[in-house]
């Protein structure tokens, strides 16, 4: 895909999409302090496909929630598109979530009594600039992009797990965000559906999207170009993936 090459070098040349320095997170519940992340330094450029990998409880989701503006760091600096994000109000964070970032969750989080189309249109309700007349058209394009055209008007409760997660991916696409966060997107799926879902993310990356994947499985992390290892809340290693996997060979195997 040519777009991957035209889009990323310009962004990569100067301002990183995400730039985190000395970031730490301490949860405080009823005066009990749980430190979870320590001195995280991380830069992500637009167009990257990065995996955050580590054992369960190592702090991957916590980091992703902070990077995705669902949570705030306790200490340290987080610059997004070159701008410091400290001191943003809840409303400002909500607008960033509506326009700049999106999520794919392990548990799908689809509205069960709504159709695929309605679910994919949902983020557009909160988008400040996309006109309501364009919603359906954009949602349909996103659904087509994940290969669910024929399921457009199905209730999400009528879909298989893989189809549900692809609906969630379409939903994460529809606002054309700067970065898509996927937290264990294959965690609730069998291996074939998992590979299909990873294939969909791979395709998005190829068309220029920035993807940050959170997983505890090496086999899933290997779909990414870059793997950041987290152990006990610290970055243990940060490396380019040597043996990058692709869904195309794997799906034809079965």
């Amino acid at each position: 895909m040519p777009s991957a090459h035209t889009k990323s070098p310009r962004a990569a040349s100067r301002t990183p999409l995400i730039e985190v320095t000395k970031l730490s997170k301490v949860y405080v519940n009823d005066a009990v302090e749980t430190p979870v992340l320590f001195d995280i330094d991380l830069r992500v450029q637009s167009g990257e496909f990065m995996a955050i990998m580590g054992p369960s409880g190592s702090g991957k989701s916590t980091l992703m929630h902070i990077l995705g503006f669902l949570d705030r760091p306790t200490h340290g600096k987080y610059r997004f598109l070159g701008k410091d994000t400290a001191g943003r109000t809840d409303d400002e964070l909500a607008i960033i979530r509506a326009t700049k970032v999106s999520f794919v969750f392990q548990a799908f989080h689809l509205l069960p009594r709504a159709t695929v189309l309605e679910n994919v249109m949902l983020p557009l309700l909160y988008h400040p600039t996309i006109p309501s007349a364009e919603r359906q058209h954009r949602a349909q394009a996103a659904i087509n992009a994940v290969g669910l055209f024929e399921r457009t008007n199905f209730l999400t409760s009528q879909l298989s797990g893989g189809q549900k997660q692809r609906t969630a991916i379409a939903r994460s696409l529809v606002t054309e965000p700067q970065v898509i966060f996927a937290d264990e997107p294959t965690g609730n799926l069998d291996s074939v559906s998992g590979i299909q879902v990873m294939g969909a993310l791979e395709k998005l990356h190829a068309s220029g999207h920035t993807i940050i994947l959170v997983t505890h499985e090496r086999s899933t992390a290997e779909f990414a170009d870059r793997i950041v290892h987290i152990l006990d809340g610290r970055i243990a290693s940060d490396s380019r993936s040597h043996s990058r996997r692709s869904s195309s060979g794997l799906t034809s195997l079965k």
């Binding site: 669902l70 909500a94 979530r97």
Partner: peptide, 13 residues
Amino acid sequence: IGLRKALGARPRD
């Protein structure tokens, strides 16, 4: 509600 907030809903929405 959590989902809607993750998708960008403000408290007032």
